[in-house]
Design a protein around this nucleic acid. Structure first.
Lengths: 192, 192
DNA sequence: GCTAACTCTTGATTTCAATCAAGGTTTGCC
DNA sequence: GGCAAACCTTGATTGAAATCAAGAGTTAGC
């Protein structure tokens, strides 16, 4: 296996794929991601009630985003290597998070503050366009995910996830996938 | 009851609330909404398989957005007066819609083509900011809706909708609300 | 205003996923 | 490498919501 590239390199490489961002844009933006965050298994990136002040880039590791209720913890998403991650409603509205984000294994992240991020978006028209496209992409993903959750049959929900994100079955412990699919680990196990 | 204002007036009035849009921005934008669409009860604004070329503004009436499956029609949202409406994934990605949008009663809409819309967003930085803020707002709404759907108890799902959107219980036939809440009309009825 | 279609409610029964329980396996950590 | 904790699977039972069914109430359209 190749040694994973440093997260900064990977972030820069990914941004260079965006055709309308200039090399200067990419350089200026990646320069803002100064803070490195390391997490061990079980550590929290954010707990419910805290305000999310940062956007993160996952260099390596795996995290889960969950909504804690009195009865249970409902898994609503995962953080993978080479993806952005934050408690989004808290980040954009600057209000306490309803969600917890927890490392499921050792993780390495880069962090960028909301203030730096917002200032950059406001000051760079091309980057604003990039962010708009990202928002649209994520929103479309959420809308598709809504269908997954509305299907009454556990089997159809599983089918859709298998089609859309087969890789998570290799990465993520089944019990979290079960929660994400709104079923018990037993039900998921029996469907396989 | 006051006679409802013409949809153009209402659209203009709403946009004027946005502090960073100038009067000229508002005027230029509303001028693009030329086409009026009238629908009768049961008519379709779009059917699954068609590509959504328009963004709509609902002047009056009520519509449902649903995902048709072989077994059933799953309701994923509603269109109300004074709101924007479209089959979003189809509209932004220019691909066939997975959804149908149907009038539940007589409706009056304004339409704007994707081309006109995109061109305006690209050409007006203030408006691009407005659209970005809209995307963030809608995305946060979707994320909250996801929790609603993940709650295993029908009662808790109903509770959350009652808190978030009590008005829909006055506007929308219960059977569609039941589908939206992932339960049968019988279950919804018994919970009340 | 009348009629027909649609809607909502209530009751009886069935079904399927949750729960409870236990054994075997894998993973993480010292 | 070995131990402990976490994880996955399988089986038996339970329970809550779906389904089936019927009747009352409401709405839309002529």
């Amino acid at each position: 296996m190749p040694k994973p590239a440093a997260p900064e390199i990977m972030l820069r490489t990914l941004l260079r794929q965006v055709p309308y961002l200039t090399e200067t844009d990419v350089g200026n933006f990646t320069a803002l991601w100064q803070r490195r965050v390391g997490l061990g298994r079980g550590d929290f990136l954010i707990q419910a009630g805290q305000v999310e002040h940062n956007l993160y880039f996952v260099g390596s590791g795996l995290l889960r985003i969950y909504y804690p209720t009195q009865a249970e913890e409902i898994c609503v998403g995962f953080g993978y290597a080479n993806n952005l991650l934050c408690s989004f409603p808290s980040f954009v509205a600057n209000r306490p998070s309803d969600y917890c984000i927890q490392a499921l294994r050792r993780c390495e992240l880069l962090a960028l503050t909301r203030a730096d991020f917002q200032q950059f978006v406001e000051s760079n028209e091309r980057f604003a366009r990039f962010w708009r496209a990202e928002l649209e992409r994520v929103l479309v993903g959420r809308i598709e995910r809504e269908i997954d959750l509305l299907l009454p049959e556990p089997e159809r929900r599983l089918d859709r996830l298998l089609k859309r994100s087969p890789h998570i079955f290799q990465l993520v412990p089944k019990k979290y996938i079960a929660s994400y699919l709104r079923m018990t680990p037993e039900t998921l196990s029996r469907l396989r």
